[in-house]
């Protein structure tokens, strides 16, 4: 049976269909649920085996990226997301979803304006680096996929960085530290981090936009490989195991 998955959205989310497509390709059965549909559709989230918080500009990011999304999710869902994690449900926050997870305190650090001061869309290579994270565990090759964000510069204090390193929670690093490989000036070229359980992954790049051969056709060479489909397969496998 395909594990039921939720793509969680808020008004202004725009990559939900891309995320749902990737989940389908990876063998899950996704539906989109918007915060506007709550509390009516809360049961679907309770039953979900996997959750993706999709990218976009929730509430226009009017008070800073992901902030209102996090506040509204807390108001409408209470502590349902942390509860899901304690039940073993894998959660992936992509881009605005990552920003929301950071604002809600489920992931550490902060996502600030890109160092260059504006939105940036380009393909990057990601080195998976965590064996704790259920999403990146045992990924054999780098992942190539686009970034598309204005506030994706990952920053954290030294103590947090030290903790992330020592607990194997840096899930992805950009291929190099300098622009444009590291497109936003993230500290230590960090592109994604996970929580202490390894179930919750937040990342700025968009793996959901590289799950078919054609999407990556012009962007992949013998030296620069990497579909993001194995990442979603990992998530679905973890959902099955939960």
């Amino acid at each position: 049976m395909k594990p039921p998955a939720i793509v969680l959205t808020a008004p202004g989310t725009n990559r939900q269909n891309d995320a749902a497509f990737a989940l389908e390709q990876a063998g899950a059965s996704p539906v989109c649920v918007d915060l506007l549909d709550l509390p009516g559709r809360r049961g679907e989230i309770e039953r979900a085996k996997l959750i993706v918080i999709a990218g976009g500009f929730s509430y226009g990011d009017a008070l800073g990226s992901g902030r209102v999304f996090a506040l509204e999710a807390e108001r409408l869902l209470g502590d349902l997301l942390p509860q899901k994690v304690s039940q073993g449900t894998p959660i992936l926050g992509v881009c605005n979803g990552f920003q929301m997870l950071v604002r809600s305190g489920m992931l550490p650090g902060a996502l600030q304006h890109n160092e260059r001061g504006h939105f940036e869309c380009r393909w990057v290579s990601l080195q998976p680096s965590s064996q704790l994270c259920v999403w990146t565990r045992a990924l054999e090759e780098p992942v190539r996929c686009p970034v598309a964000h204005g506030e994706g510069r990952y920053l954290a204090g030294n103590a947090v960085l030290e903790q992330l390193r020592s607990e194997d929670r840096v899930a992805f690093r950009y291929a190099a530290d300098a622009y444009p490989d590291n497109p936003n000036g993230s500290v230590e070229a960090i592109a994604g981090v996970c929580d202490s359980t390894g179930l919750v992954l937040g990342m700025m790049p968009h793996p959901e936009n590289h799950v078919t051969e054609r999407q990556g056709r012009a962007m992949v060479t013998a030296q620069k490989r990497g579909s993001a489909l194995p990442l979603f397969r990992n998530g679905v496998a973890a959902a099955r195991a939960s």
Partner: peptide
């Protein structure tokens, strides 16, 4: 500066 990837 333009998102040319959304919609996949």
């Amino acid at each position: 500066r333009y998102d040319h990837e959304v919609l996949g």
